[in-house]
Design a protein around this nucleic acid. Sequence first.
DNA 1: CTGAAAGCGCTTACAG
DNA 2: CTGAAAGCGCTTACAG
Lengths: 339, 339
Amino acid sequence: MATIADVARLAGVSRSTASYALSGKRSISQEVRERVLAAVEELGYTPNAGARALATAQTRVIGLFAQFLEDEFAPAMLQYMLGVSDTARELGYDILLVTDADGPSALRRITDSRMVDGVVLLNVADRDPRLPVLRAAGQPGALVGLPEDCTGLDVFDLDFPEAGRLMVDQLADLGHRELILVSQPEHVVERGGAYVWRLRDAAQEEAARRGVTLHAVYGSSHQPEIGNELHQLLDAHPGATGLLLNNEAAAAALPTVLNARGLSSPAHYSVIGRYSEDFARTFSLPFSFIESAPDRLGAMAVRQLVRRIESAAGQRDPYVTRLISPELKDRGSTQPPRP
Amino acid sequence: MATIADVARLAGVSRSTASYALSGKRSISQEVRERVLAAVEELGYTPNAGARALATAQTRVIGLFAQFLEDEFAPAMLQYMLGVSDTARELGYDILLVTDADGPSALRRITDSRMVDGVVLLNVADRDPRLPVLRAAGQPGALVGLPEDCTGLDVFDLDFPEAGRLMVDQLADLGHRELILVSQPEHVVERGGAYVWRLRDAAQEEAARRGVTLHAVYGSSHQPEIGNELHQLLDAHPGATGLLLNNEAAAAALPTVLNARGLSSPAHYSVIGRYSEDFARTFSLPFSFIESAPDRLGAMAVRQLVRRIESAAGQRDPYVTRLISPELKDRGSTQPPRP
DNA sequence: CTGAAAGCGCTTACAG
DNA sequence: CTGAAAGCGCTTACAG
């Protein structure tokens, strides 16, 4: 491979002049610049990323730490990853993807060796063991997922409590008096999936406030268990007229369950889910849903991270916690309960 | 961050001795090694990856080039990515994830700047525009997906023709005389998804050889279109008793379609799909299927790539094209046709 | 068994 | 507007 020394030699200038001609960091005569550019072209020169990183202490790489936890819906993770990756490219950064089972030690390894300029952590748990490592890292980090303690970090998540209230209000306004809320499996909560109880608790409070009965249950994250559980739930609560689903597997299974019972939505049940547009498309779900916006959250995290990486001012900015407002995508699966 | 100079100073040795004590590339007295290790511990020293890469011309990073094409089932891609990533880590490599829409230029950018030691290309098309770039790159590359021209590259894929024959034989042996094969959408084929016609053509030949009627059709890759198409297909071919599905969306939709018609498998239709175990679990599919083995293919590609990267001998090894034999996972969805 | 030095390929003050 | 030189943090022949 050609080096900048080769370029300089061919252009008949010094290495520094060649470097400046390419970076534009100081003024270069028109003629010299053209000679340098021609040499670059002829040699097919591309700067060596490692050498540049060593000289500038900037890698222009962002570490993306994904976690694939049991009992969570893996395909959803892909949407977050793509949101991060696409936005990073727009901003001129590449992505180092880390999927190690041992998140904390992988995080330490990557940041200590300076392979990246900053990191995005996906699927952050309430007391995520990666956070202490990240705080000690001396590199900026952005989280997707709201932990208990956000100090020193930029955090992005859906406003799950608001989502819970929105779901309940929507159906309460239509006159529903008895609802079922199916959450993720209990394992997810125990492991620190705080969004599960944040949505549930807010929904429960709102239901109480509105005088609505809310049966909040955990559901399996796999077929066919979740299908059977849904059948049992509908049997157990014959008065329920609305279903709230904070569980992807439950949403995917519901059409078949309703079908098997000779029922449909919204005729027999008003239904609101919580998942991404892409998920709805993949499973062809006919329900209104609260968009979980993985691409948008991933993009926000990267933008903030890059701001911190690039601006000296950005480094001292106060840390932000941004909870995006839930947006209900109406697919016509709600209506007043049958009299 | 501490550098190796800090370590050397604290241990009271030269930088080279510190380096050798850590790499083990020459013998070091027990006592000196312990002093160096203690210094490393005390300072929390980790080598700077960029500096090491510059000195050794090895990054210990593998470029993973994913392509998310329209009309293809995105979640399946995640399985390949995880197979590659997990195996790379086992072998001591990290993953640079590249999802640029413009694959060829991204590939050139990454290889020219020496950010990686080699690359894995996923979802390789028949005449993939990334291949000429890769061949010119001067870095080893492994493909997942069989292109028309494999010269200079290691290639890994499922043996799709064999899969087609296996599907047909399985049902022909049971006595079926009229089958329907649903492939991916025509767009996928036009774009170069050669596996579609490789499986189909082989299935068609085998059917002819066995005296079996095979209706080979393209199907949509999305709901609800594919569901409607399946209904029409079953209407159009009332004599068909077996369904072969080389189309994930069709497989996911079929249970609902059969249900709606008051039919079931294997009672009314023997069914064989082609997808991954993980896919089957996610969608809770009750069909026997040919395992597409994304994790295994990803792992094979990485192993071969690392072999080429690390061994001077490996560099001169003949290039391999490995088509793994299809494995039928029996879920009991086939039986002789009703008389 | 150990050290001093060169070199990997860049960028960027320092000088003119 | 341009050049010579130092330095980023490693590794590894070369010498002893």
